[in-house]
Computed example of a mutant assay.
Amino acid sequence: MLGHPGRPVAGEPDAEGRQILVLPFDSLDAARRRLLAFGPDAEVLAPASLRHDLLAAPWGVVARYGPPPRGHAGERVRTVVITGGTDGIGRALADTLLRRGDRVVAIARDPRKGRAWLERAAATGAGDRARFVAADLSLVTEANRAGTAVMAEAGAVDALVLCARRYRSARTETAEGVEENFALFYLSRYLLGHGLAPALARAPDPVVVNVAGPGAPLDVVRWRDLELRRDYHGGAALGQGGKLNDLLGVAFAQRYAGIAYVLVHPGVTATGFCGTYDAETLAHVETMRRTAKPAAAAVPPILAAIDAPPAEPLTALVEGRRIAVDGPDFDPGAAARLWALTKDRLGSLAPHEGRPR
């Protein structure tokens, strides 16, 4: 829909899993740029002029709408680090970036999925631009090790995209004694953001894209029980984790001038649904698998942030719509409080594990 101010609309998937998306765009040029990001599995139905343009593109002979390689027409190749890059939104983004010619470092837990992703990249001629780092990011030691590995190889990182998280119906602690949601959904993002800041600072237009759930009220945070030792619920753990990442964004933007920080809520998306579920939650997840929008539909706003980082230090997007980040739910005092608590928690671990900054 050109010139339409509305929000994206997703239809129900058909028997083969295909889904029609109605997407608003300001112009044909904007539509052309963004639709290329969906890759060869997407097909434009209307308007006819745009469909014809994309079908006639030279690279359409190989893949229906795969974007042209970077480096052509003077376009710069970017280096993008993605956590959770072998599943869900992370994988959809990684594949899109490789198709268009960027370099991708995927950090994820399962080496088998990592090898499969590398094999797919090699099969499409992108093997030399794909790198996999195996790490269980729920462990502080592993998050630090992954960050060190990236720093050792990358001269500059254009974008860090944080996607990894996992649902637990029952409260679980890591081998380091940290509640797993707090460790994976929050601490790993804290550690990788700060750990890769020097490499990000070397890029011309660096950005951190934190795929979380911005905009929840501040009162979802249990300040005296951040690891939910009492009255644990998996949904509450993810809700609090999203708010902690809001505050992480506030603190990061204050600390690192010149590195844009973008919080993204993609909406209900059919991701990898990693985790362990009780029967009630599993039934809800199965419904989501059938009705949620595909992971590819969450990619365009992330790509937009990578390609043209906002001028503002901190931005929050909910399904492509900007929300205010200057109100009480993004309180700098609360961000400073969380920063201090985070340093204390990392300091309580073995000295070589925490490395607080």
Rank of each mutant, 00 (worst) to 15 (best):
V133P: 01
G239L: 12
P111W: 03
D225M: 00
D231M: 03
T174E: 02
N245G: 08
L97I: 10
L93K: 03
V318T: 15
L23V: 13
A197M: 12
G3H: 14
F182T: 04
V211S: 04
E173P: 01
G320Y: 10
G60Y: 01
V161F: 06
F252L: 14
A216S: 15
D344R: 08
T148P: 00
Y232S: 09
R34C: 12
L162M: 14
F38C: 07
A175C: 04
G327H: 08
G60S: 15
V318D: 11
E179S: 07
E176I: 04
G147I: 14
W223N: 01
G213L: 15
A10M: 14
S49C: 10
L118Y: 01
L21M: 15
T79Q: 10
D87M: 04
L98G: 00
R290W: 05
R255E: 14
H352Y: 14
L200G: 10
G354K: 02
D225I: 02
G74W: 05
D102W: 05
T86M: 04
A154I: 09
V220P: 07
V209M: 05
R120N: 01
T124N: 04
K293C: 06
V211N: 04
D331H: 02
V105A: 03
P58A: 13
D331S: 12
G272M: 06
A257D: 15
A216Q: 13
R168Q: 15
A152Y: 08
S27A: 15
A116T: 11
R64K: 12
L139A: 09
C163L: 02
A292S: 12
V44G: 08
A73W: 10
R202N: 05
G147T: 11
P47Q: 09
D136P: 04
E119I: 03
G235I: 07
P111V: 05
F330H: 12
G333K: 09
D278N: 15
A94D: 10
G101R: 05
D41Q: 15
H284R: 12
R165D: 01
K243A: 13
F185D: 11
W59G: 06
P198S: 12
D95Q: 13
R145Q: 11
L346H: 03
L317S: 09
E12V: 15
